[in-house]
Design a protein around this nucleic acid. Structure first.
Lengths: 398, 398
DNA sequence: TTCAATTTGTTCGTATGTATC
DNA sequence: GGATACATACGAACAAATTGA
C-alpha cells in the first residue's frame, strides 16, 4: 500500500466505529448511505461496503434492504449469544438442583440458555471458570461464591466482567468486599435465630451449635444463634459450639458430637448448619444411645429432600429453592436490560420455620404446652419474627 | 435474480462445502485458486471471493496470502466454542443432577462447558430446544429423549445436526428409529429381570408390576419382568400389571394399588418402575393396612436417595448415576474427535441388584433359606445374571 | 540471489436487481 | 411511479506474499 498506515476500508471502519462510540451516531439512527460515504471519503462504494461488512459482523451496525444502514442498539452491540453462565459450588448435592431449576425456568422463558459450571467449592477452580467464561460469549453471570468467607483474591476477574459490561448476580452469599454488588440471598441471621428460639421455646437450655466456618451462611446462622441465646439471657458456652470446614465436613460434626456426649455435657438441643449435618448428627446421637427427639432435639436448615424424607423428619428452615434461582435470574435479566438504575439490586429472602419430628418440648415443659400431641405427623409452618429487628410477626410462635 | 433458485455466490459456497464434506478436498489440501473457480463456474472472481469469504467465516477453509486457499482440518472446522449442549427431561428431580454431575466432570476435564436445557419431558419443548441449540455454537449434544416411546416427529432436527456435523449421544433411552445412533443406557431388560427374579427367589408368586408406559425404560423393565415370570413358569396375569403415563404418574400407581388391595387380589410382591413409585406404593399399602415387607415385598429401581433414606430402605437396582453421565460425555468426546470410526458407539451398562429392607422371604420359604436373619441392616449387592442371555454370574444369587 | 509465475488481498468502476418510502 | 438505498454481479487493475526456476 502506498499509504504507509492502513487499508482504506479498515480506516473507514475505524472512523465509523469511533463516531458510533462517541455518540455521533445514536443507537437506531441511520448512518450515511453507502454512496454518501463513498463521496465523503473519496473512495469507491465497494470499499465502503467492505468497511460496513466489518462493522456489521462486529455488531455495531445493521443494514436494512432499501432503507439504509443503522447504528445498533447498545444491547445488541457485540453479544447476542443469549447465554448466561451459572457457576455453582456443587451441582448434584442437596438443594442446588432446585436452585438451578428455578434459574433455568426464568431464563428459558426469556429465551436465554444456561452455561453451567461447578467449582467444587474451590477458589482455584472458581478462578479458572471465570477465565474460561470470559473467553466465551456470555451476557451475564449468576455465581454462588466458593468458600465465601475467605478473602477473594481474584477481584481482577470481576473487574474484567465489569469492563466487558457483563452483569453478575451473587446468590447464597458473597465476598465481603462485594457487599454492594447485586445479590440474592436468604436472611441466614434470622434463620439461625428462628431455630434457636424454637428450641428455647421448647424448654431447652443447653443448645449445641454446629456451623460451617468458611462461608457467609455459617457465620450468619451462628450470629442468629447467639442473638437468640442472648435474648433469652442464656450464657454463651463456647464448648457447645463446633465449627467445621469444607475439608472436614464429613468427620468433624460426627467426632464433635461423640466427644460432647462422651464428656457427659448436658446438651438437650442441637442447632445444625444444615439438614445434611442434622442427619449425620442424629445418626451419631443414636449410635451413642440417645433418642431424638425424646432425649435431645435437633434442627436442620434448608428444608431439603432429607428433611422431608429422613426417618425422623427434620424441623428445619425453609429454603426458597427454586424461588431463589428465579429471583436471581429475574434480577440478572433486569441488569442486562439496563433497567436496574433505580431498581432493587439486592434481595434478602425471609426464612420460614418448619416444625416436624426432630424437636420436642422437654418433659418439664410439656405440661405447660397444652393442645399438642406427641404423635403429630402433619407439619406446622411459622413465619416468625425476631423482635430485635422489628419484623412483623406471622404465626403464633415467638 | 433472474435465476429463480439461488444466488451465485451461495450456490458456489454450498457446492464447495459439499465437496469438502464428501472428502473430495481433504483437510489441509489446497482447493482450486480463485481464478480457476471463476473459470470453472463461469462467474467472476469477485463472486468466487464472496463465496470463499462465507466458507472462511464458517471455518471450512482458510486462505494464505500468495499460497492459495486450503481445506480446514476437521478439528478447526466451524466451531471452537467448546460448548456441549445437555438436554434432560428434568433438572432437579431424582437422579438427573448426578448424571449431569458426571457429564460435567468429564467435559470440564477436557476444557468443555455445558449448555443446559430441560424439556419437562415434553416433545414440543424438546423440539424448541433443538432449534434454539442449532442457532448456537455447540460442538456436540447429549440428550435424554422425552417420552422416548412415542414416535419421534422431529427427525428433521436430528438430520440438521448431522448436516452440521454436530455429533450427539442419547442417554437413558432413544427413539425406536434411532436405535443405531450413539447411545449410553442401562440394560433395563436385565434390571427388570433381576428384581422380579429376586422376588421369585424369595418365594413370591403373585407379583404386581407397575411400569411407565411412555418411555423405553418402562417397556424394557416390563420385558424383563415378563421374562423372569416365564422362566419361572408362572402365568402372566395382566390384571397385576399397571401402566402409567407422565401425566398420571402421581395418581395412577396409588389408585391401582388401592384397587388391587380392595379386590383382595393375592399380590405378595410389587415390582415398581422406580424408587419414587415404590415409595408411593409402600405408603399406599400401609394406608391399606398391609405391612412391608412382612405382608408384601416391594422393589424400587435406580438406587436413588430415597432407596437409602426412606423409612423402609428399598431393595432396588443400582443406577450408574455419575457413571452414566461420564460414559456419555466420554463417548461424545470420541465422536467429536473423530475417533469413533471403529470405536464403540453404544454402551449398555449392567444393572446391579441391591437388597435392603423392602423385600423379605415368604414365611413358607424362610425355613429353606438358612443363615439369614430378618434383622439384617447391612445391604447386600449382587450382580446377578440372566441365564437367558448367558451372562456370567457374580454373587450367590440366581 | 534474482526473477517470473502464481495466488490472494485491495481498490475502483459499472450495471442490474430489489426493497422501501 | 420515481427516488433512494442496499444486494448482487462482472470486469479490471494493482499490491503483496509465496514458490520455484
Amino acid at each position: 500500500m502506498k499509504n504507509g498506515e492502513q487499508l482504506k476500508y479498515s480506516r473507514l471502519a475505524d472512523e465509523l466505529k469511533k463516531k458510533i462510540l462517541d455518540g455521533v451516531y445514536r443507537p437506531g439512527e441511520k448512518i450515511p448511505s453507502e454512496n454518501e460515504l463513498a463521496a465523503d471519503y473519496q473512495i469507491s462504494r465497494h470499499t465502503v461496503r467492505k468497511a460496513l461488512d466489518l462493522l456489521t459482523r462486529e455488531g455495531y451496525v445493521y443494514a436494512e434492504h432499501g432503507r439504509g444502514t443503522f447504528c445498533s442498539e447498545l444491547a445488541h452491540r457485540g453479544k447476542d449469544s443469549r447465554n448466561i453462565a451459572v457457576v455453582m459450588t456443587y451441582l448434584s448435592d442437596y438443594i442446588f438442583p432446585r436452585v438451578i431449576q428455578g434459574i433455568d425456568q426464568v431464563l428459558t422463558e426469556n429465551g436465554y440458555s444456561i452455561i453451567l459450571k461447578n467449582t467444587s467449592n474451590s477458589r482455584t477452580v472458581e478462578a479458572r471458570c471465570l477465565e474460561e467464561l470470559l473467553q466465551k460469549d456470555i451476557e451475564g453471570l449468576i455465581i454462588e461464591p466458593s468458600k465465601s468467607d475467605i478473602f477473594c483474591k481474584h477481584g481482577t476477574l470481576y473487574e474484567k466482567l465489569d469492563q466487558n459490561g457483563i452483569p453478575y448476580v451473587f446468590i447464597q452469599g458473597c465476598f465481603a468486599q462485594m457487599e454492594d454488588k447485586p445479590q440474592v440471598r436468604m436472611d441466614d441471621y434470622m434463620g439461625g435465630y428462628l431455630v434457636t428460639r424454637h428450641l428455647l421455646d421448647l424448654g431447652h437450655q443447653n443448645i449445641m451449635g454446629i456451623f460451617k466456618a468458611d462461608d457467609t451462611q455459617g457465620r450468619e446462622r451462628h450470629r442468629g444463634y447467639v442473638a437468640a441465646l442472648q435474648e433469652a439471657g442464656i450464657f454463651y458456652n463456647p464448648e457447645l459450639v463446633v465449627w467445621f470446614h469444607t475439608e472436614d465436613r464429613a468427620s468433624k460434626p460426627v467426632s464433635a458430637v461423640r466427644e460432647i456426649v462422651a464428656r457427659r455435657k448436658l446438651a438437650d438441643g442441637v442447632v445444625c448448619y444444615n439438614d445434611l449435618t442434622a442427619m449425620k448428627v442424629i445418626k451419631t446421637l443414636e449410635e451413642e444411645g440417645l433418642r431424638v427427639p425424646d432425649d435431645i432435639s435437633v434442627t436442620g436448615y434448608d428444608n431439603s429432600f432429607i428433611a422431608e424424607n429422613f426417618r425422623i423428619k427434620l424441623t428445619t428452615i425453609a429454603h426458597p429453592h427454586e424461588k431463589l434461582g428465579e429471583t436471581a435470574a429475574a434480577l440478572l435479566l433486569d441488569l442486562i436490560r439496563g433497567q436496574s438504575e433505580n431498581a432493587v439490586r439486592q434481595v434478602v429472602m425471609e426464612p420460614e420455620l418448619i416444625i416436624r419430628e426432630s424437636t420436642r418440648a422437654k418433659e418439664t415443659e410439656k405440661k405447660l404446652l397444652s393442645g399438642q400431641t406427641d404423635e403429630q405427623t402433619s407439619e406446622r409452618r411459622y413465619e416468625a419474627a425476631c423482635p430485635m429487628t422489628g419484623w412483623k410477626q406471622k404465626g403464633d410462635l415467638c
